[in-house]
Design a protein around this nucleic acid. Structure first.
Length: 211
DNA sequence: ACATTAAGTGATT
DNA sequence: AATCACTTAATGT
């Protein structure tokens, strides 16, 4: 199967005809086995990878050698990090590894400006890629904030208990909510949860710290 | 008994 | 996590 046809099959519904021609002319398709590392942190980026088949993962490896997966890239997806980075630093901040056997379209970075300039469908594609990643990021933020709220409440209660020199705090859920700038409903739920965990006991206008 | 306020819940976004 | 829309429980008059 020739390059053009292959690209058309995978990307035909999102890219214009002319863009596909350009990608076929200037890019190249390569196959990789699972586990192959295409890019390492610090590498100079020469090509933008777009996944044609299989799955790749983008990871950050911290100082202890621990691998944190930022996201997976499936068919049709490109590495958004690459877009932002190559525009400025030209150096990779991430590792790019094949999760499965995969085929990639590699398109030279130095021609990317031209893609952005010439092809609306390319611009749209890049934006959508960013948008999706941003959504994932926001979800992650929500989760983090969510996980921290119960700890914040517990800390708040402990502080109050210490200041008042008593395990029994006279306070309403609403007041806690105001102090932690959240809603009463959320406080009520988390307090219930803490009660089930046996860390506190709830009354009306009053909370008892156990331990 | 009735009204008011605090707390609990399920569903949705 | 936030908000809505209710329900239920506790308290004051």
């Amino acid at each position: 199967m020739n390059k053009q046809h292959k690209l058309e099959k995978v990307l035909g519904d999102i890219f214009s005809e002319k863009l596909l021609e350009d990608l076929a002319a200037n890019g190249r398709i390569e196959s990789f086995e699972a586990g192959t590392q295409l890019i390492s942190r610090g590498d100079e980026i020469k090509d933008i990878p777009i996944v044609l088949s299989g799955t790749a993962k983008v990871v950050r490896t911290d100082s202890s050698g621990e691998e944190h997966i930022l996201f997976y890239l499936n068919e049709k997806e490109a590495c958004t990090a690459t877009f932002s980075i190559c525009a400025i630093t030209k150096t990779s901040e991430i590792d790019f590894i094949m999760e499965t056997d995969a085929e990639l379209l590699l398109y030279p970075v130095h021609l990317m400006d031209h893609l952005t300039k010439e092809f609306p469908s390319w611009r749209y594609y890049v934006c959508r890629n960013f948008n999706q990643r941003m959504k994932e990021f926001l979800d992650m933020m929500d989760t983090i904030v969510f996980m921290k709220m119960d700890q914040r409440i517990m800390k708040y209660l402990e502080k109050a208990s210490k200041a008042l020199q008593t395990k029994i705090i006279n306070i309403t859920h609403q007041e806690i909510a105001n102090d932690l700038s959240t809603s009463r409903v959320v406080v009520s739920r988390l307090l219930k949860q803490l009660e089930h965990e046996g860390r506190i006991k709830l009354y009306r206008n009053r909370i008892e710290l156990l331990n």
